[in-house]
């Protein structure tokens, strides 16, 4: 059964430390295509993304992704944080992807071939196979983003949440990542929700913008 791409907030109040990110916000929107979550620095875009992933809890109200609470839909959501693999730059990029396959299971990693196939599949999707043998620390910013995207695509999620995937990239690398996201969204039917400051580079490709400002979240198509 194909689930509808859908985000629903019901009277959500969400805080990050002492600052309020959302103040009693109710909103319902599709996440089909590419959705830009926009807002100034410090408005709480990352906190909102984390709440949508079920990692941060709203102090009031409820969040639903496809009519389910975020914790129940984790396998259908891929996530790429802003910093990728800072902890282990010496390890080959391929290992970063391979070990994310079935990484939530306990015990020794059996099913070696199936895991490897899945890692190679997602690396191919993101065009990262050619440099995946190199240590993560030896890759450029754009190449690292492709590895992060490959990690997020493991398990064929239907939604991708990306935290500043264009940050720190030059214009050329930004365009490559944007093209890749369009391709993933169009060919695989993945709904992409991303935060970014690069609104001008994205204006032709986004389906809608969610503007986060002063505790309010507004959708613009």
């Amino acid at each position: 059964m194909h689930l509808r791409t859908d985000l629903r907030l019901e009277n959500v109040t969400l805080s990050a430390g002492s600052s309020v990110v959302l103040k009693g916000v109710s909103l319902q929107t599709s996440l089909a295509g590419i959705t830009l979550l926009s807002g100034r620095n410090g408005t709480g875009k990352t906190t909102l993304l984390r709440a949508l992933l079920g990692l941060d809890k709203p102090s009031h109200g409820s969040i639903f992704l496809r009519n389910a609470v975020p914790e129940d839909i984790r396998k259908d959501v891929g996530y790429m944080p802003q910093s990728i693999g800072d902890a282990a730059l010496a390890i080959p990029a391929f290992s970063h992807v391979l070990n994310a396959v079935g990484g939530a299971c306990w015990g020794l990693p059996f099913h070696w071939r199936a895991r490897r196939r899945e890692a190679e599949r997602v690396l191919k999707l993101t065009g990262a196979r050619v440099f995946a043998h190199r240590p993560l620390g030896a890759l450029s910013g754009g190449e690292r983003q492709r590895i992060g995207l490959a990690q997020a695509l493991i398990g064929a999620p239907e939604l991708l949440f990306l935290d500043e995937p264009l940050a720190g990239l030059d214009h050329g690398a930004q365009n490559e990542i944007i093209s890749l996201l369009c391709e993933l969204s169009r060919n695989l039917g993945i709904g992409v929700l991303m935060t970014s400051h690069e609104t001008s580079s994205l204006k032709d490709v986004v389906s809608r913008t969610l503007l986060l400002e002063g505790g309010h979240l507004r959708a613009r198509i």
């Binding site: 994310a100 990484g103 990693p109």
Partner: peptide, 16 residues
Amino acid sequence: RPLLFSSLAPQVAQAK
């Protein structure tokens, strides 16, 4: 497996 995943990509591991 969880240790390796959470060491290589702590935030992604949490999200999963």
